[in-house]
Write a protein that binds this DNA or RNA. Structure first.
Lengths: 219, 219
DNA sequence: AATTGTTTAAAACATTCGTTTATTCCACGC
DNA sequence: GCGTGGAATAAACGAATGTTTTAAACAATT
């Protein structure tokens, strides 16, 4: 049990702490003491703190990447060259995102980490993710392009990230928001509730009219 | 020139560095050396690094709060009890946000800072902002309620935060996103461009049809 | 011009960080 | 059995951090 136990213990503890406080604000000493492993274990097993951060992401993104590619394969087979509708693409993305961490019961952590990847400095992380998972995003992006031919190239890019922001912000701040919502409206929301509420908003956002003077792009 | 110069020199330098790297990743030594003031000056004039962070925010949020209250006063006077339309409220909010840092020629910095306030740990910052500027948000929130009576209470709450997520995520991850956008589309976007693109998306999101089975709430 | 209070300057202080080293432990194969 | 190699441990290292201290320079007031 030796190695496996220590490595996963570190990863389990690190991902929670990273999600709670960010990367720079989480020291290796905090991680190792909470995980009840030796301080040097991180550098021994992972090499450095940077490598640990990347490993935390890989544990989520590797299964996600595989499953999502598989799901897109199925879709492309089914639609046989026809453009896949935007709703179907978003639905598939949402389902895959929900499936992956469901096994680990930590959707919230996964979302927080995704948010941090965009927000925190950590240039190495962006490079790592881009390098390892850029093709998944590219593939999805291409399919969305075919589903929304009326959108100018740049506009689609930005709207995709707008919607990404909506989802990540909401789900990563879920606890805080849920506290407020519970207190003010006495109505408890589940993650599934939230996603049900998110769907029409995201679709409407993607299909919103073009900004007033986007002429230079729209040609 | 003595005090004023040193204090504003520190603030000017700090806000740029904070916006670029975040709070924890920016050391006082980096700030003071770049600002060409003594290291101890920060602790002398502000008391601590935390207080410096708060001071950086206050320099933006104090004028913003004042202007926004004034703008809402004008609106309420003009609409004389009638509900103020949602588009007008959002427009006013956006205009005020744009006006404040325009004088200091640093809209991007202001936006990044707003994003960091939500994103970074810094519990003291959230408490400070809540305490000093919470009433502005409450007032705006009430006006939005009157502008969207058709929305169930909880639905409006969530959508407001969806849209907040869109804006904050986009603006706080601006550099990262801009890097990608520059590389892929060779088109440089300004913050003003982004806000122009954001508007129709936010409006459409707020006015999206209700989710399929929100019946229990809609009554 | 002397004095007072304020600001700047240089240095040191006490922590904390990531990383490395040296040692011990322990399981496994010969 | 023993030795060997991978893994855990304890300790220390060097660098960087926020903060404090002490002294000097300065401005303003009387």
């Amino acid at each position: 049990m030796a190695q496996t136990d220590t490595v996963t213990r570190i990863l389990d503890t690190a991902e929670v702490l990273f999600a709670e406080r960010g990367f720079a604000e989480t020291s290796l000493r905090t991680i190792t003491s909470k995980a009840k492993v030796n301080l040097a274990a991180v550098n021994y097993h992972f090499g450095s703190k940077k490598a640990l951060i990347q490993a935390v992401f890989a544990r989520y993104l590797d299964p996600f990447s595989e499953r999502f590619h598989q799901a897109l394969d199925d879709l492309e087979l089914h639609y046989r060259g026809e453009p896949i509708p935007l709703e179907v693409l978003l639905e598939t993305l949402a389902r895959t995102v929900l499936e992956v961490p469901a096994e680990r019961n930590s959707l919230k952590v996964f979302m927080r980490l995704l948010g941090l990847a965009y927000t925190q400095a950590q240039g190495h992380l962006r490079r790592y993710i881009q390098e390892h998972y850029g093709n998944v995003f590219s593939r999805f992006s291409d399919l969305v392009r075919r589903a929304t031919p009326e959108l100018p190239e740049a506009e689609r890019f930005w709207r995709l990230h707008f919607m990404l922001g909506t989802v990540i912000f909401t789900l990563s701040g879920l606890d805080a928001l849920r506290d407020i919502a519970d207190k003010d409206y006495h109505e408890h929301v589940s993650v599934r509730d939230l996603i049900r509420r998110l769907r029409p908003v995201v679709v409407a956002g993607m299909q919103a009219p073009l900004p007033d003077d986007a002429l230079k792009v729209a040609g």
